[in-house]
Design a protein around this nucleic acid. Sequence first.
DNA 1: TCTGGGGTCCTAGGACCC
DNA 2: TCTGGGGTCCTAGGACCC
Length: 441
Amino acid sequence: MTTRPRASILHLDLDAFFAAVEQRDKPSLRGRPVIVGGLGPRGVVSTASYEARRFGVRSAMPMSEARSRCPNAAFLGGRFGAYRAVSAVVMDELRRLSPLVEPLSLDEAFVDLGAGDDLDLSVSGVRAIGERLRDTIRTKTGITASVGAATSKTLAKIASEQAKPDGLVVIEPGSETEMLHPLPIRVLPGVGPATAARLARLGVKSVGDVAQVEESELVDLLGEASGRNLFLLARAHDERPVSSERASKSISVEDTFDRDITDPALLSALVTRMADKVTERLVRAGHSGRTVTLKARLHDFTTLSRSATLPGPTDDAREVSRLAVQLLKDVDASNGVRLLGVGISGLSDWVQDDLFTSGGDVREPGDDDGPDLDAAVHADRRWVPGMDVMHTEHGAGWVWGGGLGRVTVRFETSATPPGPVRTFAADDPQLSAISHISEAD
DNA sequence: TCTGGGGTCCTAGGACCC
DNA sequence: TCTGGGGTCCTAGGACCC
């Protein structure tokens, strides 16, 4: 039960990944601030290049703020296909080192070098492995990587963080607490703003401060799991193994609309579309699930969820959407909804035997049980008949047809079921799409 | 025009069972 | 007969991560 004797856990993190891929592929962006994120009115920053970070632009910052801080940056929506391709090359490279690779995201992974084939795990040996790896990745992908190595996952991740950008840090076995204790508690995984604030009230600021606190006191303050965990981490105790096969536990789809929506018919149509989409992903993954969760974020940003569990797993889109629409009825949308989401959890590999149950009844996008709605909720995008929802002076309606400078909108709201069809000039300034088609990555 | 989308893990309370 | 104690499942919300 003692910590690993050698710095055999490696953590790799690609530097400003999305932005770096853009700069690699577009030389005119090199040396310039690049910001990748949502381009709509409610977008946030996904990745800022180091040039943009100098202006204070950070991940998760509202795009509007990023624009005012760094108006001359290149603002890009992201090309996930390209990012995935680079990521695949990198992950392959890691697997050449050891079969035990645990990806955390497209740009990050742990490697257990101890499972590798006859590697030199002395400090200098690990350092050489890390430098060679960084070199290979730079050559093969044109992207720089930072690497950390240590006796545990936590320390390896902290090390790669310290190595950024484009560096390598190996924490020597035996020196762990010495390097850890002066650091702010926020470096510990699981310590976010809320936990840090609670600890600050005890006067606990550094990891060393945490190490002075009784375990029972941490448990009282933070709960059983976090308290214990923090107690151990502060002493550099972390035995978690690198795990290459982690089964996913839930699948979800959500969408923030360009403007808040109140129309109940529109909301249920959107929920139905999301249920279809999430079920499609479920089926593609070869899974089924028992619990359907509806998520809603209201006008004031309060977020709520409602869930229901079936007696057995399903992968049927109609069943999922029926449930999700039912759950929506519990949501008070009268002041506006800014986000909806549908998720499925309680996953199993069980696949529905459709001998008697399904057959011939699969909903196709754009079919007649209502327009396909992925499209709908974002301004300034191309309108797609049967897919977009349009906001007009008469309320919201589905784009039913278009072309030649005209757009036909069918109004079908709770107030006016099957509603009238009206045609507008496509450049009518009062028209704006309020729901959009998400990128088919 | 403040605040994305995809996840994981934890907690607390109630139902229910033994 | 005046109040046990686990354990599990479900739901809702929150913190956190990339």
